[in-house]
Design a binder for these strands. Structure first.
Lengths: 135, 135
DNA sequence: CTTGACGCTGACACTGATGTCAGGTCCTAC
DNA sequence: GTAGGACCTGACATCAGTGTCAGCGTCAAG
């Protein structure tokens, strides 16, 4: 498929897909005229790349990580070097802390949302006048 | 306390603390000479701000959110407006999806890390020659 | 009063993925 | 062969929090 279709199927802009290629995260064949031609598996790969970006990994880290995954691009499935493993362990730990942060933040949001929706249910009364705890 | 101590106790740079004040996320008294003087509760607030930043909220959203929290700064505990609630619900959902992403990314990292550490345990053999599945 | 650590403002730089535009090429349908 | 949509490269802009520096003021200890 060409870049437009890959963009449509993944929801990732063409701009970003070209950027991924420039960063060696994604590869493509070229037609005689120089246009990119992607294999089917590019769809899964782009989704994976997006997830890793969302997790806060940088393109350089992703570029080192991808060849070490099974099924990465049909390529020879490299083994992670010692220093890469150290880096990935750091990232994993960071992600773990980040998840904990996110869960706390979600609770904060839930509290504020819940308190507001509670008021929607009884729109008459003590909303803005905290004259003692309700109930 | 003054800004240096707050920075030390929260691990947040003085630069960032001043920025938070500029964005109305954090308030301080001033000494006669113009230096910032923080109350004890500023520590908790800074930690909370950091968590919300880590969750991807922007300072403007945080600025609207904070006054709606209990114990926000001892202030009058405002109620979230409708449009704010809509925004916060969006954020909460985004955070939920982000957590799912992060968990998948963590699994990816675990797979690569695990595969490499497996090899560390038996450093002699088939590491780079995938001549059939082990075991 | 002096000294040295600490704080102040304002300005500029950076990061890194992405948006956007210009000017040109390719490809398919007619 | 031509119209028009899809694609190409390269360049510059953006966002938002943070780093960093300059030049100056504050404050507590001696």
């Amino acid at each position: 498929m060409r870049i437009g279709e890959l963009s449509r199927r993944t929801g990732v802009s063409e701009r970003s897909l070209r950027y991924y290629e420039q960063q060696h995260l994604l590869s493509s064949e070229r037609t005689a005229g120089g246009q990119r031609e992607y294999a089917e598996r590019a769809v899964d790969r782009v989704v994976l790349i997006q997830e890793l970006f969302a997790a806060g990994l940088h393109s350089k880290t992703i570029a080192k990580l991808l060849p070490c995954m099974r099924d990465s691009d049909g390529g020879p499935n490299e083994m992670a070097t010692d220093s890469l493993v150290v880096e990935l362990v750091d990232e994993r730990d960071r992600i773990g802390r980040l998840i904990a942060d996110l869960e706390r933040s979600r609770e904060v949001l839930d509290e504020v949302i819940g308190k507001a929706e509670e008021v929607r249910e009884r729109p008459l009364a003590q909303a803005s006048a905290p004259t003692g705890a309700p109930g």
